[in-house]
Design a protein around this nucleic acid. Structure first.
Length: 410
RNA sequence: GCCAGGGUGGGGUAGUUGGUUAUCCUAGGGGACUGUGGAUCCCCCGACCCGGGUUCGAGUCUCGGCCCUGGCCCCA
């Protein structure tokens, strides 16, 4: 038998409904902040991603050549495509641009919990605003979106300037190594590495900074620097907004194009792969041939959100199955149409069995049964049975609709 | 790419020292049953992940691969 490709998943209706529900909450939040949805191609020129992230990522992407010999890649993320789109067709739009997306991405990696080869990201990019409140807005929006998803999470906000000030005395290679140690919280490793390179004093300051959870203390460690005022304003906006977050000057993020504020969120109940969101302030447009444009954004790992939510029954919609006899069919079709117009899921019986058997089938999934036979056809009425209480009434079409609409769902 | 643990009908399971027709539950389909309930009864469908090896004989032992789960690496 054929199998689905490694790292991909099938979604049955129960799971799909639950995903759509979370997805629509996220969309709703983003819209309410004035963000509008965009869509970019599923695949792009390979160069788009190597320019952004380096040649090394080729082995972790789905790369292929089309019949015209073009080097293409399934998108491994969406920030680069969105900024490419901005450069191509967004330059003349009034700034700032508030965009969001919900789309699938592909990475050729070893699957594990919360990590798949096809996965979905919900993300936001705020393009062309370069103020503390713009950065704060993105953080606030991220916080609201995660909250709306119903998971329990911890939000870490940092700024690259702290680390950069301290690392300035190292050459670029050592800077990178030092950041890796910090990222892994490997303080003995960091000490050993730096003392072997005559920077023993630095490791204490770095470790103190990474563990620092208070802004003024962080500045004590680093000393003053030009962005201080801006950073303080950003964090005071977060305080004003009442956002619950943790200051974390140790956040490094993998890539070099982040310019200042960086933030991450972690689900409280996940294992090794517990990061559910990452983002920050960056400059990327100039790499794709546009003007140097300040931007800020984040991406949510949608699948991890769903894992963190755990098994939850999706809220059922109203449902009424139609049982009918051959004589009742024309009227049953009319009645079913009216119920559907009212937003009620109204499947017809397809078996043509006895009314009793039709009811058996309907009672497996629906709250109500609509019974239509010759009598109902002749009187233009509806026999509506509440399958939970067993109470059955003969009603006009309007009354039946009203009864179902006002009833509780199961 | 690396490490560990796994893989028996759609889901969940039993399977003795290697021994006949692979167990049970559930789900699914059909019927009893064309004007009133998820029941019941009967019937049906359906599996040893794939390939090599050992053996008279492999679900069972062995090797390789694939896939799943968790972790490492990476994490744009």
């Amino acid at each position: 038998m054929l199998q689905k490709p490694r790292g991909t998943r099938d979604f049955l209706p129960d799971e799909m409904e639950s995903r759509r529900e979370v997805e629509s909450r996220m969309r709703g939040v983003a819209r309410s902040w004035g963000y509008r949805e965009i869509c970019t191609p599923e695949f792009e020129e390979l160069d788009l991603f190597t320019i952004r992230s380096g040649e090394g990522i080729i082995q972790e992407m789905y790369v292929f050549e089309d019949k015209g010999g073009r080097k293409l890649a399934l998108r491994p993320e969406l920030t680069a495509p969105v900024l490419r789109m901005y450069v191509n067709e967004g330059k003349t739009l009034p700034k700032p641009l508030r965009w969001f997306y919900f789309a699938d991405c592909f990475r050729y990696e070893r699957p594990q919990k919360g990590r798949y080869r096809q996965f979905w990201q919900f993300g936001v990019e705020l393009i062309g605003a370069d103020t503390p409140i713009a950065e704060a807005e993105v953080i606030m929006l991220a916080h609201e979106i995660l909250s709306s998803s119903g998971i329990s999470f911890t939000l870490h906000v940092g700024h690259l300037s702290f680390m950069r000030i301290l690392l300035k005395e190292l050459d670029p290679f050592d800077q990178k190594r030092a950041r890796m140690f910090l990222d892994k919280r490997d303080t003995p490793g960091l000490r050993e590495y730096l003392s072997g390179r005559d920077h023993a004093a630095l490791s204490d300051r770095l470790i103190a900074l990474a563990g620092c959870r208070d802004l003024s203390q962080a500045f004590e460690i680093t000393g003053d620097f030009p962005e201080r005022e801006r950073i303080e304003e950003l964090f005071s906006i977060l305080e004003e907004a009442g956002i619950c977050y943790t200051l974390n000057p140790g956040i490094a993020r993998g890539l070099d194009y982040y310019t200042g504020m960086v933030f991450e969120a972690f689900a409280d109940n996940l294992g090794a792969e517990n990061q559910v969101l990452g983002g920050g302030t960056y400059r990327l447009a100039h790499l794709f041939g546009g003007e140097d444009t300040p931007s800020c954004g984040f991406a949510v790992g949608f699948d991890r959100i769903m894992v963190a939510r755990g098994e939850r029954p999706a809220a059922p919609g109203k449902s009424a199955g139609v049982a009918f006899t051959p004589e009742g069919r024309p009227w049953a079709l009319r009645v079913a149409g009216e119920f559907r117009k009212a937003g009620i899921r109204t499947p017809l019986d397809l078996t043509g069995k006895s009314i009793g058997q039709q009811l058996s089938g309907i009672s497996r999934f629906a709250e109500y049964a609509i019974i239509i036979g010759g009598k109902e056809r002749d009187s233009k009425t509806v026999t509506l049975k509440d399958l939970r209480s067993g109470i059955q009434k003969n009603l006009s079409l309007d009354d039946a609709l009203h009864e179902v609409c006002s009833g509780d769902t199961r």
